[in-house]
């Protein structure tokens, strides 16, 4: 019953992650969920996936969260939800039950032979891998987005978006009233 226990703890962690008031605490609970899911994956025999999940999900993402929260700062004002909790629970409940209902018969699907993991990942799913590379590139751009504002004051003289905005009104003046000399 180890997996069941792991699962229950993971779900509890997830609930805590949702409930926690402080963002940092929330992020740590999320790391917990990730670690427990990784353990579950390992137990299910998916060793490679487990390792990747542990390192990326529990490690890298948590670091990112901490980084972002420290930059954005805690927003402690309690925000009251717009949607009433019973309504949210009802919607979620209906969806999950319906998925479960639909998924259960699929579990008895016949088993077919298949290729080794490596072959699948690198050959049959080559397109996916390419997409992943693109995704990672997008992620890099995202990180640059976080850091973009930070760099600006450090490099004066380089035209940034805001500086262009400052110039624009004069340009507009020049276009609209060509006779008028720029101050």
């Amino acid at each position: 019953m180890l997996p069941l226990a792991l699962l229950i703890v993971a779900v509890l962690c997830a609930v805590q992650a949702v409930r926690a008031a402080r963002l940092l605490v929330s992020a740590i609970w999320l790391a917990g969920v990730s670690a427990l899911v990784a353990l579950l994956l390992y137990w299910l025999g998916a060793h490679e996936v487990a390792v990747i999940e542990l390192s990326v999900g529990a490690g890298l993402v948590t670091v990112l969260f901490v980084f972002a929260i420290s930059m954005a700062g805690e927003d402690l004002t309690p925000l009251k939800s717009l949607i009433s909790r019973p309504l949210a629970l009802a919607l979620v409940g209906v969806s999950v039950v319906a998925i479960a209902w639909l998924a259960l018969p699929l579990i008895e699907q016949p088993v077919t032979g298949e290729s080794p993991f490596g072959t699948l990942l690198w050959q049959n799913r080559g397109a996916d891998v390419l997409v992943q590379i693109v995704l990672i590139f997008a992620g890099v751009l995202g990180v640059l987005g976080i850091l973009a504002d930070e760099k600006r004051p450090a490099t004066p003289g380089v035209q940034t978006a805001d500086m262009v905005e400052d110039v624009t009104p004069e340009l507009v003046t020049e276009i609209v009233e060509p006779e008028k000399e720029l101050a």
């Binding site: 309504l87 979620v92 209906v94 969806s95 319906a98 639909l102």
Partner: peptide, 18 residues
């Protein structure tokens, strides 16, 4: 949040129909 609620509700309805 309301947008998400709409998406989830739509998902629920679709699943129920299926």
């Amino acid at each position: 949040n309301w947008n998400v609620a709409g998406i989830v509700a739509g998902l629920a309805i679709l699943l129920l129909i299926v």
